[in-house]
Amino acid sequence: MDALQLIVVSAGLRQPSSTRLLADRLAAAAERDLQLHGRDVRVEVIELRDLAVHIANNLVTGFPNAELGDALRDVEHADGLIVVSPIFSASYSGLFKSFFDLIDPMALSGTPVLIAATGGSARHSLALEHALRPLFSYLHATVVPTAVYAATEDWGGEAAEFVGRIDRAAGELAALLTLREPKPRDSDIEDEDEVIPFEQLLAG
Rank of each mutant, 00 (worst) to 15 (best):
L59Q: 04
V83R: 02
I87G: 06
L72S: 12
L59D: 05
F88I: 01
E47F: 03
V60P: 01
F63W: 07
N58G: 00
R49G: 00
G69C: 13
L59R: 09
R73S: 01
R42L: 09
L68V: 14
D70S: 12
E67F: 14
R73W: 06
L81W: 02
R42D: 03
N65L: 14
F63V: 04
L68N: 15
A78G: 00
D79L: 07
L51E: 02
L59V: 07
V75W: 09
F88T: 01
V75N: 08
D79Q: 05
V83T: 04
N58V: 00
V75T: 10
I87C: 08
E67C: 15
V83Y: 03
P64T: 03
F88Y: 08
L48N: 08
L68M: 15
V60Y: 10
F88S: 04
N57E: 09
R49D: 00
L59C: 11
P64A: 11
N57C: 10
D50R: 07
L81N: 02
L72P: 12
E76I: 04
E47W: 03
A78D: 00
P86C: 04
E67D: 14
A56Q: 07
L81H: 02
V60C: 07
V43A: 07
V43C: 10
V45N: 11
V53F: 01
V84Y: 06
I87M: 08
V60T: 04
G69F: 14
L72Y: 13
P64V: 06
F63P: 03
D74Y: 09
S89H: 11
S85I: 05
R73C: 00
R49E: 00
D79F: 01
A52S: 05
F88Q: 04
L48Q: 07
V60D: 06
N65T: 08
A56Y: 09
A78C: 03
V75I: 10
P86F: 10
E76A: 09
V45L: 14
A66E: 08
R42P: 08
H54R: 00
V84L: 03
V45C: 12
V43W: 06
G62P: 13
D50A: 10
D70Y: 13
V75E: 01
S85D: 02
L48M: 10
A71R: 15
L48G: 05
L48W: 08
T61E: 11
E47I: 01
R49Y: 01
V83L: 01
D74V: 05
L59W: 12
L59H: 11
E44W: 11
H77R: 13
G69Y: 14
V75R: 09
A78P: 00
G62Y: 12
N57Q: 10
A56C: 06
F88P: 02
R73M: 02
